[in-house]
C-alpha cells in the first residue's frame, strides 16, 4: 500500500515537473504570450459580440493570440471582479458595459462589501456608446415624447415600463428620465433585454427604453414607435427621433457603452501599447464591418477623454441608483 502510494505520488510529481518546463515570460516585451479578454456576459450578448471582433483585430495587430472568455454571473459582477483581482500584467483585460459603474453603487446601497470598485480598473478605450431610445407600441395613444410625459404627469404611477432588471441599464435610463421630467412610472423588471422587449410587444407594459440595434428592427416592422433618445445628438439611423436634450431635459442623458479595461496597476508601457493598438483596431476594416453588422456605431475615445466620459457617466448613474434606493423602503 505504502509503496503503491509512493509510486503514484512520484508519477504525479514527474508530471508537475515536466509541466514546469515552460517558464513565465518577462513583462517588458509585452505581449509575449496569449492575451485573454474577459466578457462578463454570456455569448451573444453585447459585451461578447463587441469583444469578439476586438479580439480578432487585436490578434492581428499585436501579433499574439487574443482569446475571449465569457465569465458570467451576477449581472456581470463575477467577470468584472475576476479581472479586478487578476494580475495587472496586461494579459487579462475586461470588456465592460455601463453596468460596471452601477454594480458597486448597488452594493453600497445594500451595505454589502462591494465585489469591486471602479477605481480598480485602468480604462484603455471606449469602443461604442449608444443612447437608449424610448419606444411605445404603435397602437398606443402617445405620438410624441411630450404627449407621453404630459400623460405620465397626469397619471403618476400608471404608465408601466419593462427593464432588463432592477438597477440594470434599461432601468437606469428610465430612472434618469423620470427624474429629469419629474414623472413617476411603474417599473416591471424582467430577466434581460430580450424578455423586456417581449413584455412591450405582448402589451404587458406600455413603454421601454432600449438600445437602437434592438428597437430599430421592430420600428421598421411597424410594431413599435420611437419617441425620443437619451443621447446628446439624434441617432443616425433614426433622424426623425429627437433627443431629450432638445426637448428640454438635459439630465436625461444615458448611453449603453462598451469599453476595454485593464486591472489598475498595469505597467504604463503595457497600457500605452494597448492604447495604440486599440487605435489601430477601430480603423481595422474587419472590425468596422463587424460593428456595422451589429448596427452599433463605433464611438472611439481613449486616455483623458475616455476617463472624463467614464467619470461623468459613473456620477450620473451613482445618483440614479441612490434616487431609486431600496425598492422596499418606498412603499
Amino acid at each position: 500500500m505504502v509503496r503503491r502510494l509512493l509510486s503514484v505520488v512520484a508519477m504525479a510529481l514527474v508530471v508537475v515537473i515536466v509541466a514546469h518546463g515552460a517558464v513565465p515570460a518577462a513583462a517588458d516585451d509585452y505581449p509575449s504570450r496569449p492575451v485573454t479578454i474577459i466578457a462578463p456576459f454570456p455569448p451573444g450578448g453585447v459585451a461578447d459580440l463587441t469583444a469578439r471582433p476586438v479580439a480578432a483585430a487585436l490578434e492581428k495587430i499585436m501579433k499574439t493570440p487574443v482569446g475571449v472568455v465569457n465569465k458570467t454571473g451576477a449581472a456581470g459582477a463575477v467577470g468584472m471582479q475576476s479581472v479586478a483581482v487578476s494580475k495587472p500584467d496586461g494579459y487579462t483585460l475586461l470588456l465592460a458595459l455601463s453596468s460596471i459603474s452601477i454594480i458597486p453603487e448597488a452594493d453600497k446601497l445594500f451595505g454589502r462589501p462591494p465585489a469591486f470598485t471602479v477605481d480598480q480598473f485602468a480604462p484603455i478605450a471606449l469602443i461604442s456608446a449608444d443612447p437608449t431610445i424610448l419606444v411605445v407600441r404603435t397602437e398606443s395613444p402617445w405620438k410624441t415624447a411630450k404627449e407621453f410625459i404630459d400623460d405620465a404627469k397626469k397619471r403618476p404611477g400608471q404608465i408601466s415600463y419593462s427593464s432588463s432588471g432592477i438597477y440594470g441599464t434599461l432601468h437606469m435610463a428610465m430612472e434618469l428620465l423620470s427624474h429629469a421630467a419629474g414623472i413617476k412610472m411603474r417599473h416591471i423588471p424582467t430577466a434581460g433585454a430580450g424578455p423586456a422587449m417581449n413584455a412591450i410587444l405582448g402589451g404587458h407594459v406600455d413603454a421601454l427604453a432600449s438600445g437602437p440595434s434592438v428597437v430599430i428592427p421592430q420600428i421598421k416592422a411597424g410594431k413599435l414607435r420611437a419617441l425620443a433618445g437619451w443621447g446628446t445628438q439624434r441617432v443616425a439611423a433614426l433622424p426623425d427621433v429627437p433627443a431629450f436634450k432638445e426637448l428640454g431635459y438635459p439630465d436625461a442623458e444615458f448611453y449603453i457603452w462598451a469599453g476595454l479595461f485593464a486591472p489598475k496597476g498595469t505597467p504604463e508601457p503595457v497600457l500605452a501599447k494597448l492604447r495604440t493598438s486599440m487605435r489601430e483596431v477601430v480603423n481595422d476594416p474587419g472590425f468596422k464591418s463587424a460593428m456595422e453588422k451589429l448596427e452599433t456605431p463605433i464611438a472611439f475615445k481613449q486616455g483623458d477623454e475616455f476617463q472624463k466620459f467614464f467619470d461623468a457617466d459613473a456620477k450620473r448613474l451613482a445618483e440614479g441608483v441612490k434616487r431609486v434606493g431600496k425598492v422596499e423602503e418606498k412603499k
Binding site: P42, G44, G194, P217, A221, K223, K293, L294
Partner: peptide, 25 residues
C-alpha cells in the same frame, strides 16, 4: 425576431454577427 429563451437568443446573436437583421422583416 424576439428571443423566447436562451437558445434562440444565441441564434439571434449569431444572425446579427453575420449581418442578418433579426426581426419580423
Amino acid at each position: 425576431g424576439v428571443p423566447s429563451g436562451p437558445i434562440p437568443a444565441v441564434m439571434l446573436a449569431a444572425m446579427m454577427v453575420h449581418g442578418v437583421a433579426p426581426g419580423p422583416m
